[in-house]
Simulated scan of single mutants.
Amino acid sequence: MLRAAIAFFILAIVAYIFGASGVAGLSVEIGRILLFVFLALAIISFVINLVSGRKP
């Protein structure tokens, strides 16, 4: 999921360079959403791991 977020940010930069500001804005928003979802899942996983007490 983090790779997808980075890919959308790169797509946004390329689209902005070529003048497609609508595509760039949309790509940034999708990348931002994916980044927040990734961070939320990572934090939830970390907390569950702490609570369960199991070693990885």
Rank of each mutant, 00 (worst) to 15 (best):
L35H: 11
L35F: 14
V23H: 02
G25P: 03
K55A: 13
V14M: 09
A40R: 09
S21W: 13
N49H: 08
A7K: 15
L26T: 03
A20D: 12
R3N: 07
Y16I: 05
G31R: 01
V51S: 12
L39G: 13
A12Q: 08
F36N: 07
S45M: 10
S45T: 03
A42Q: 08
E29V: 12
R54D: 07
S27K: 02
I6V: 12
V14H: 01
M1I: 12
F38A: 03
A12D: 09
R3P: 00
A42H: 13
P56L: 04
I44H: 09
V37C: 03
A12W: 11
S45K: 15
S45Y: 04
M1N: 14
N49A: 14
P56N: 06
I6G: 05
L41S: 10
A7W: 10
I33C: 13
S27V: 01
I30L: 01
R32P: 01
I13G: 02
A7Q: 15
A12N: 04
F46M: 13
A5D: 04
M1Y: 07
G53I: 00
A24H: 12
F18D: 11
I33Q: 02
I44M: 07
A20K: 15
R32H: 07
G19C: 04
F18R: 14
L11D: 13
A20C: 06
G25C: 12
P56K: 02
L35D: 01
V14K: 08
I10R: 15
A12L: 06
V14Y: 04
L41N: 11
S45E: 01
L2Y: 15
S52I: 12
A40C: 10
I33W: 02
F8K: 03
S52T: 11
R32C: 11
V28M: 05
G31M: 01
A20L: 14
A42V: 04
A20S: 14
S21T: 13
A7G: 14
L41M: 13
G31D: 00
A40K: 13
A20G: 06
S27H: 07
V28W: 06
I44K: 15
G22H: 07
R3W: 14
F8S: 00
I33F: 06
G53H: 04
A12I: 09
A7N: 05
I6H: 05
G53Q: 07
R32D: 03
A15F: 13
I43N: 00
F18N: 03
A20F: 07
N49F: 13
G53L: 00
V51M: 00
A12F: 00
A24M: 12
A4Y: 09
F8L: 01
I13V: 02
L39N: 03
N49Y: 13
L34R: 05
G22Q: 08
I33N: 04
I48S: 03
A24L: 09
S52Q: 08
N49C: 08
A15H: 09
P56E: 00
L39I: 01
S27E: 05
A20V: 10
A12V: 07
I30F: 00
A42R: 02
F46A: 14
P56W: 06
G19T: 14
P56C: 05
Y16A: 07
I10Y: 01
L41I: 09
G25W: 11
L34F: 02
